[in-house]
Nucleic acid binder design. Structure first.
Lengths: 202, 202, 202, 202
DNA sequence: TATGAATGAGTCTTCATTCAT
DNA sequence: CATGAATGAAGACTCATTCAT
């Protein structure tokens, strides 16, 4: 197994995942056949099956890719010292992403939520991402409360869940409406966040 | 078709939809076969097909039923005069429902979001429900702004979308986590709403 | 489920098994496709699958049918009192059957031996038939020994196994050669049996 | 192709056949894939296909190897002068082999019988071996009859077939039962052979 | 109208075989 | 000669839908 093969192998896998990604978000996971993926990837069925054991495995892999992409968004927020800044920064990062990204990942995400209710691997991946995001938000809120910046009467975990909801909910609405006013949405959320902050409101 | 048959006809339809509802939320829409529905409804395949032309149509019908159920929740909120009360009342109604309801409708909802991306009928139904909810919230917020109770710098539509997100997002998280702390969640949202209210905070 | 359905159901099952029987002995079990069986049975694939869950199950059923046919051959031998007569009678019955039967059941049998090495259900059926036959022969030999008609120095079970071998071996040779001299074969076996009998040989 | 390559060529072929042999008797002929054979032989698919044109050809070759092994067993029996001794010697050789050999060749043999019904090459090989064995036995019996040692009323060919049946039948029973009492079996056969011998029985 | 047996297009998956490197 | 990635025909099986009774 020379190193060329390893690179080649990875490239092919990526090629297949990418094709599957396209198909899944276009037609939905269930409506996508293995032939669809092959056609999209310009590969034969046999080739695809030599990289993945089953359609299920491809779906699981896709879920994990989405997970990875989502987690990368959060990195780098921790270095900020002020709670308000951190929360606002996170809002900008999360929602900003939604404007750049096409319908593609929005449809993919919604499809995965549904798939998670059926497929264990997918559920694991989706659960993982939610937990991680929850942890990050929870930590920020807790720190803010310790420093007296954030209202101590709210549960940090609950705040985290609401934050996540505002993001996932916007994803859903973008999926259904096709187009959404992200800027207005973010402005509103920032205003609402002030309800949690102890700082003097100018 | 005499009226007696009409009653019978409606009863049968309800019976089928109810069976489909159960199956869909248990196994997912795609994993449910027409035979599953027949078994659950204690009817023959032929019978089911004399009430619905296709599985698609049953799915669409289910989406509309869910729509109806959701819309009923809102009625009666308009009679309240105070914006804060209205919003808080809505929060209680919406989220309170989530505690009573089992996983059932949660799974159904998530499944429908995904189905809406594929199936036009379902999309129409889901879109309709979102629009209606948005309208109600928008109206309340706009009224509040007119009366000076709510911060005029936010877009009423955006506030509505955030409200909807907090609900849909919780549905999603309940679907994924299995169990969620609804009370803490509602408390947090109420606190955040204050960020939008101009009233003196006691 | 009216009784007509039960009769219809059984008839269809028999129809399918019969078709499978034909195909299996013509082309071999592995070379026979479900489509072959359907074509032979003049039924659609869906129809066949509503009577049998899988190809494996059809194979197992075939094995059991063969088992039943084989067991019926033995019934009625026990009423004879003399050991020599019993053994000779059994030889006539067993081998006589081979002349009547076409290549069909011979090929089927050989195929099942091989299938038994792979498929558990088939193995169970083939094992069962062998055990039953062994028991019958063993009982006869043991009774003969008790009455002093048969040489006591041989193990009854071993005699039974040899008997069975002479039958299965002839099945095999008929399968391979196509045609065999059954009469000469039976004569030889009868002569050899005398080697086990204590009676005075005229 | 220089001779060194010839040696190399033969070694590779043997290596492949040996691997196939192992696989076939472990999983059955049909359940064995070309990849299984390659893995077992530690060779690439391409390599295997440069020595054999197809899987069929490997199967045929295996059948011929089995043939060769079986024929070697008989050589050397002819030098004995007494018919009884010859037959007894053959019995010892044939059945003794069964005790040494593992399930391996037993499963292989049974598989080949079944394959012979389908595959012409295999059929030719199996037929050939049976004919040769029959010839040897027939010759011995005929010689015995000429010398007055064996009952002249039996057909030599039929005796030969019975002999072969006792061996093949035991192979089958070992395959199905897993374990058999070879010694008791051989004892019984020797006793039965006396039914064919004219010699005074001590 | 009700039934459920029958249909068959469509799905996932396997595996013998080829061929560019 | 060797390699093993790629091919794609073929197989088992599912399930929405039809239709004779």
């Amino acid at each position: 197994m020379p190193k060329i093969n390893k690179a080649h192998y990875d490239a092919r896998k990526k090629q297949i995942i990418s094709a599957a990604d396209t198909c899944f978000s276009n037609k939905g996971i269930h409506q996508t056949t293995m032939h669809d993926i092959c056609r999209q990837a310009q590969l034969s069925i046999g080739a695809v099956y030599s990289y993945f054991d089953s359609k299920e495995q491809i779906i699981a892999q896709i879920a994990q890719e989405a997970l990875k992409r989502n987690l990368e968004m959060i990195s780098g927020v921790d270095k900020l010292t002020n709670s308000r800044e951190k929360l606002f920064e996170l809002a900008d990062v999360f929602f900003g992403m939604l404007e750049e990204t096409g319908d593609h990942s929005v449809r993919m995400d919604i499809g995965l939520w549904s798939a998670a209710l059926i497929n264990d691997e997918v559920h694991k991946a989706v659960l993982e991402i939610m937990k991680r995001h929850t942890e990050v938000f929870t930590k920020i809120v807790r720190a803010g409360q310790d420093k007296g910046e954030i209202d101590k009467s709210v549960k940090p975990e609950s705040v985290a869940m609401v934050m996540i909801s505002t993001f996932k909910g916007l994803v859903l609405q973008k999926g259904i409406y096709g187009k959404v006013d992200v800027q207005g949405y973010v402005d509103t959320i920032k205003k609402m966040m002030k309800g949690l902050l102890n700082e003097p409101q100018v």
